[in-house]
Design a binder for these strands. Structure first.
Length: 586
RNA sequence: GCACCCGUAGCUCAACUGGAUAGAGCGUCGGACUUCGAAUCCGAAGGUUGCAGGUUCGAGUCCUGCCGGGUGCGCCA
């Protein structure tokens, strides 16, 4: 039940009525129409800019048009008062029965409340994490992982058909380095003294079990072979082991992908998807042989001016055209990536969302250009860039050395503070702003710490329900069986505030989903939690406001209904964020 | 040099994608515990939204140019 779309419907009805009376032209378009809660409560419960949006098209002054629309609205149910304000806003105050309807709807629909069909089942591909399979996840990967997962949850809740996907970069030079590093550990496992790990190899201890695994499976058989013989074998084994490691790391945050897509699979097996993609572009004259200017900034040592195969990404807004084939004849990473995004489109994903780290922001334009070209404008491509996370310990920044083993792993962080604080804090900020993460703060039990504050609100709601059962045995059964009319006794301003906040939730979900901004859910939950804590505390000064009124079982049932509805929404939002909604805090 | 992101109260951040008098928390100051857990709440002070123009009924939000901070620039991945 979304009161804003209900009111929007009323407004559009009013416009249609005016059209049928020839007061408005038949072809006016309410482009840019908003129906929202005004910032200032003095402006009523719902405000619309409809008159300002249509004024020019109608050839009327905004306030005059607002007046005409307002007259139509006054006859509608549920709207108690309509006022024209400022340049032509239509402000509406709604009757209390609307808010009671919201509470009732929450109680009836529980975790289905605010589920939306704005997505209309449209297939959306959310690709996130996609870390090179060369080692465990470190803390820098955490944010994108949590963000992508929560965004996928949110889109799912809003009615999209979501697929969570991980792109495995298993085709580049870095997995060959992985294979050689694993081979060293294999020799080590067989008793060779390998000494220090030479530069250019992955030194981490996490490869030791991989070496042992290779030794167990192949014995000494790989020792006599040439590199070009053992490398593919070791590589495949090591990549599989690394992906297991990564999946285990993601498991600690309860993150699961439905699809793991191998880069290598694009060129191996029957069809060469990269070649097909390049051929597709060639047919549209978007690929040519040419030269590029040298890169700006410091010139790479091995840069050479040469003729190469280029994609005309400048046709689609990129700064320069991009190379597709390396001098050794193999495809560039970008060429594979083009084929990969084309593959997503051919699998039926018109909407593709990629979640990347800040260090890849320079890559957005060219992939956007590629998607435009490959889908002939049909694809809807959005990159969500997650900015850096800066780690602090009690206010002191944690320096991350590039030396071996000095990275803070994702697992370290989750082990120390737990999954819930990590997930919530990663989402309690816009994705494109840098985020500070303080180990001490996120486990603090205070209002300072939004994770705790929101979870506490949920726990408190359940604590109230438990306590009510002590005062009034079986009152929760009354609550189950009660009639919607019990809600009529919810008239206190704090109760109304809570009901109005609940009424915001469906619209918030839709807005956050369409904007791809899960952080809005986190901020909303903080506000809802605050409303509940406030009302709970008002009961200290004003005992008649307490949720549990030992002298009035009927009123208590009504208030418990509200508390329960709030708990449902807190749990709903926390579930989208992937954070637990505890029934008690310990 | 170029591209992208950020710049909002002393600090950390919101602001429903162009709406009305820019809001929270922390910190500061002043208050409230024989409670349904004070693990909290109430009140006050605090702003030329980095600067300068522009677009329109209306700009923190869009456009242009500066200033400051961050990230990146390749046939790497």
């Amino acid at each position: 039940m979304n009161i804003f779309s209900i009111i929007e419907g009323r407004i559009l009805d009013a416009v249609a009525a005016l059209q049928s009376q020839d007061v408005l032209p038949g072809d006016v378009e309410p482009k840019g129409l908003t129906v929202e809660a005004p910032r200032d409560a003095a402006h009523g419960d719902v405000a619309s800019n409809i008159a300002m949006v249509l004024a020019k098209q109608a050839g009327l002054k905004p306030r005059d048009l607002a007046d005409l629309i307002a007259k139509q609205l006054r006859s509608g149910d549920g709207i108690e008062a309509v006022e024209i304000a400022g340049p032509g806003f239509i402000n509406m105050s709604l009757g209390k029965e609307i808010w009671r309807d919201v509470v009732w709807a929450v109680l009836e629909q529980r975790d289905r409340f605010a589920r939306s069909n704005v997505g209309a089942g449209m297939a959306v591909n959310v690709e996130y994490v996609s870390v090179n399979p060369t080692g465990p996840l470190h803390v820098g990967h955490c944010r994108g992982a949590v963000f992508g997962d929560a965004l996928a949850n949110l889109l799912d809740f809003a009615g999209f058909g979501v697929t969570r996907e991980y792109y495995i970069n298993d085709a580049g030079a870095q997995v060959d380095v992985l294979a050689r590093s694993a081979y060293l550990r294999y020799r080590e496992a067989l008793g060779d003294d390998i000494g220090e790990i030479p530069p250019g190899y992955y030194p981490g201890d996490y490869l030791k079990p991989v070496g042992q695994g290779l030794a167990a499976e192949h014995g000494r058989a790989l020792l006599d072979k040439n590199e070009d013989e053992w490398l593919p074998v070791v590589r495949e084994f090591a990549i599989a082991a690394m992906m297991d490691l990564i999946r285990d790391d993601l498991e600690t945050l309860n993150i699961h992908h439905e699809v793991f897509f191998s880069e290598r699979s694009l060129i191996e097996g029957g069809v060469n998807a990269v070649a097909e993609t390049i051929a597709f572009l060639k047919r549209q004259d978007l690929v040519y042989e040419g030269r590029l200017p040298p890169p700006k900034g410091k010139l790479p040592d091995d840069w050479e001016d040469r003729e190469q195969t280029l994609f005309r990404s400048t046709n689609f807004g990129d700064d320069i055209d991009r190379a597709l084939i390396k001098s050794d004849g193999s495809y560039t990473y970008f060429a594979s990536d083009m084929a990969y995004h084309r593959d997503k489109f051919l699998r039926g994903f018109k909407t593709m969302i990629d979640v990347w780290g800040a260090d890849h922001s320079g890559y957005i334009k060219r992939v956007g250009a590629a998607v435009d070209a490959l889908t002939e404008g049909e694809g809807d491509f959005d990159v969500k860039v997650c900015q850096l996370v800066r780690l602090f310990r009690a206010g002191e920044p944690i320096r991350m050395s590039k030396r071996a083993g000095a990275f803070v792993t994702l697992r370290d962080v989750v082990d120390e503070v737990g999954s819930d604080p990590v997930r919530f804090m990663m989402l309690y900020r816009k994705n494109d702003a840098v985020l500070d993460f303080d180990f001490a703060k996120v486990t603090e039990q205070s209002r300072d710490n939004p994770v705790f504050y929101v979870q506490m609100a949920h726990a408190r709601a359940h604590s109230v329900l438990r306590n009510a059962e002590e005062v009034f045995p079986d009152i929760l059964e009354d609550l189950e069986k009660c009639d919607r009319s019990v809600l009529e006794s919810l008239v206190d301003k704090g109760e109304i505030t809570l009901m109005k906040r609940l009424a915001q939730y469906p619209r918030l979900i839709e807005g956050a989903a369409l904007a791809h901004e899960p952080h809005r859910v986190a901020f909303y939950l903080y506000e809802l939690a605050s409303d509940l804590h406030v009302q709970w505390n008002r009961g200290k000064d004003l005992p008649q406001l307490r949720f549990i009124r030992s002298d009035d079982r009927g009123l208590t049932v009504a208030r418990l209904a509200l508390v329960k509805a709030v708990a449902h929404i807190l749990a709903s939002g926390l579930t989208i964020l992937g954070v637990h909604a505890p029934h008690e805090m310990r």
